[in-house]
Nucleic acid binder design. Structure first.
Length: 718
DNA sequence: GAGCACTGC
């Protein structure tokens, strides 16, 4: 029978606190059973009589697997009393009283039902991960419990370190701590910072292999590059050990962009226990922190770094930075399933304690690591979130004063407002427009949803649907070119090239070609495209078509070749629609060379990314005078990724708009009605928000800069 | 002439 989870002993206490309070923070360590048990406890005590219990998860797989387990424990069929809802898949029915869903789905639901009346309890699980969506939900819950004081309970589960902070955010709501079943972990620090953390990780793993008893080793590295290097060094290292001196070794890379056939293979090998007398070395990115749980891990080697994508609102540019991990992440390294796996296996009645080798001194950990990761909301472009909040049918949401747990910087919010204004989602006073409302219904970045609406007017909706869907899946489309796949590739790329107009057109043509072969998966692999990425595109396109159904002015079918011949060859309508959607992502070529300057709030010198299929003029070798871009990414230099050629006559009205833009009017928006908040409280809140925001920006910038400096110094040293 | 951690509607 099932093991009794610690949380069960707290049932009476939980119910007592929940009955007296609308909001409760539950701090449950890994292994406490909070994700599966809280909903069942509240169900047992009658909370499903007046509505459904919703439990949000940051990831799709978690929503599915946890609901499956709860259904099993309650002895019901999944999709009946217990169900889940994730994008593309709703497995709930009229009977459903416990519903697991991704936080993104709950946000969508509150668009059409802002009071979320169907729910009697909302549990925000894994809130410590601080996903963008969770942060927005935290703010929404704060106002929702005031609106529905009598009939809504909100529970927020978090890990140890920031429980107090969440409680303060919710006017010092009670905090309930439930112990977990963490296995004791011995932490070992290096005596000094390594000159090369790759070499240091190599040495540490071989030491473990030689000296320590059986148990797999999980090594956290920052990216594919380092993982491949370490894997090959480990292979050499293990081979050079004396035959029979220690057990066999299997070395496995684990990261998000492994080619699917290899990943399938590895998944089986990662998730099944190692064969006897054999130790596994799993060299992984942070995919192993949360998304995948590797069974059998006893030793963890922690480089202390992680790669993070950051958005800089003052330049509109993304960068991929190597930053220090936060202390809180450590808790994720030893998930409960490892302990359970050890117990099940029995290991001759002996459990061995975990060991974590940190490749840095303890003083470094104590003094330089921050408690928590910079929340996503402070390192993303907020155009989509701001549009979402503005479209919610609540009168008192003023975006610059919205109550966030960690407010984004004013700069970031203003950047979002400018973007939204340029694409007509809000008017010059910052009020959402009719266009903006329609855009918010589409599960797309604002630039792409605006493109769809414009395309509908231009008679090229079907093409725009394809482009938007392809861009939604873009990161999973192409095989990354590691040295291994490079060698294996037999045929040269034989894909359409966008006819010179750029990358959006190429993406369109690729999908149309796939349509021509009836979505044959082999066509994808033959052309070096990830099958799952293309299938995802197909799902997204279908979902977008369904949403556009009621307003569509033309066919939404993928174009056939015959139809295509009849159409203009210059994709003029589609490119015009793109220029409307990307009005805030526009660049003008420099007179004497092929560099561009962006035409936004702050002008940047940028170049077309070398991977682009945009073609230069055959005669003068020049790129088009004007392009729109999907994103700016700063790597070795600032680049525009995914560009599309546009006409000067379409650009002029945008430039006019840019000139008229007045950020003071835009951010004015609506003010908070007096009865909602007393004057003094408001002033204090605003001051606090402002100070928090300034501090957050400073903290973030200095932290990123310091980490980057240290990392670069180390790289050059070796 | 470059390179990309991980999620999600």
């Amino acid at each position: 029978m099932a093991v009794i989870l610690p949380i069960i002993q707290f049932e009476d206490k939980i119910i007592e606190i929940v009955e007296q309070n609308s909001i409760v923070v539950v701090i449950g360590e890994t292994g406490s059973g909070k994700s599966t048990q809280l909903s069942q406890i509240l169900h047992r005590r009658g909370y499903t009589k007046s509505g459904i219990i919703a439990v949000t998860q940051p990831r799709r797989v978690a929503a599915v697997s946890v609901s499956r387990r709860v259904a099993q424990e309650l002895g019901v069929r999944l999709g009946e009393e217990v169900g889940y809802a994730i994008r593309f898949e709703d497995r709930t029915s009229e009977k459903t009283c416990i519903k697991y869903l991704t936080d993104g789905v709950l946000l969508r639901e509150s668009l059409s039902n802002p009071e979320l009346n169907q729910y009697s309890v909302i549990i925000l699980d894994e809130a410590h991960e601080r996903s963008l969506n969770t942060d927005i939900l935290l703010g929404l819950m704060k106002r929702l419990v005031k609106l529905r004081t009598s009939n809504l309970k909100v529970l927020i589960t978090s890990a140890t370190l920031d429980g107090g902070k969440v409680s303060r955010f919710f006017s010092n709501c009670p905090v309930l701590t439930v112990p977990g079943k963490l296995f004791p972990v011995e932490i070992l620090y290096s005596s000094e910072r390594p000159t090369s953390y790759l070499e240091s990780a190599l040495k540490a793993s071989l030491d473990i292999h030689i000296r320590e008893p059986a148990g797999d080793i999980l090594i956290f590295m920052t990216g594919q590059d380092d993982i491949e290097k370490l894997v090959s060094k480990l292979e050499d290292g293990v081979q050079s050990l004396e035959e029979g001196s220690c057990m066999d070794a299997i070395i496995l890379p684990l990261h998000g962009s492994l080619p699917p056939e290899m990943q399938a293979n590895i998944e089986i090998r990662v998730f099944s226990p190692a064969p006897p007398n054999c130790r596994r070395f799993i060299v992984a990115t942070n995919i192993a922190e949360t998304s995948l749980t590797v069974d059998g891990v006893v030793y963890v080697i922690d480089s202390g770094y992680v790669k993070q994508r950051q958005y800089n609102p003052s330049t509109g540019m993304y960068s991929l930075d190597i930053v220090q991990i936060s202390r809180i992440l450590f808790n994720c390294y030893f998930p409960d399933s490892r302990v359970q796996a050890d117990q099940r296996a029995g290991r001759a009645g002996r459990t061995c304690p975990g060991k974590c080798y940190r490749l840095y001194p303890s003083i470094f950990y104590r003094e330089e690591f921050s408690d928590v990761t910079v929340p996503e909301i402070q390192r993303s472009s907020l155009a989509g979130s701001v549009l979402y909040l503005k479209s919610l049918d609540v009168p008192d949401i003023d975006i610059l004063k919205f109550d966030f747990l960690d407010p984004p910087s004013r700069e970031s919010l203003e950047d979002a407002l400018r973007q939204l204004y340029l694409i007509d989602a809000i008017d010059e006073n910052g009020v959402i427009t009719k266009v903006g409302r329609t855009m918010a219904e589409l599960p797309l970045e604002p630039s792409l949803s605006r493109t769809l609406l414009e395309a509908n007017e231009c008679g090229c909706l079907s093409q725009a649907l394809t482009v938007a869907a392809m861009l939604s899946a873009e990161t999973t489309l192409l095989h990354t070119r590691s040295k291994v796949t490079e060698k294996k590739r037999k045929h040269p790329q034989d894909l359409p090239n966008g006819s010179g107009w750029g990358d959006h057109i190429q993406l369109l043509q690729i999908y149309e070609s796939w349509d021509q072969v009836n979505y044959d998966p082999r066509w994808c692999s033959d052309n070096n495209l990830q099958v799952r990425g293309m299938l995802f595109t197909k799902d997204v396109r279908k979902q977008l078509s369904q949403i556009m159904q009621k307003s569509a002015k033309g066919s939404m079918d993928v174009q056939t070749i015959i139809k295509r011949k009849e159409r203009q060859k210059d994709y003029k309508n589609l490119r015009r629609a793109l220029s409307a959607g990307y009005a805030g992502q526009l660049a003008e070529r420099m007179t004497h060379h092929n560099g561009y300057r962006t035409l936004g709030f702050k002008q940047q010198l940028v170049q077309v990314h070398p991977s682009s299929v945009l073609q230069a003029d055959e005669e003068d070798g020049r790129f088009p005078d004007y392009v729109v871009y999907h994103e700016l990414i700063s790597t070795s230099r600032p680049f525009m990724r995914n560009v599309c050629s546009v006409e000067m006559s379409w650009v002029m009205p945008i430039l006019d708009k840019l000139e008229k833009l007045d950020i003071n009017k835009l951010s004015g928006g609506t003010s908070i009605p007096e009865d909602r908040l007393k004057g003094e409280e408001l002033a204090v809140d605003l001051q606090k928000n402002e100070a928090d925001a300034v501090k957050a920006t400073d903290d973030r910038d200095s932290r990123i800069q310091a980490a980057r400096d240290r990392f670069l110094a180390r790289k050059t040293n070796k």
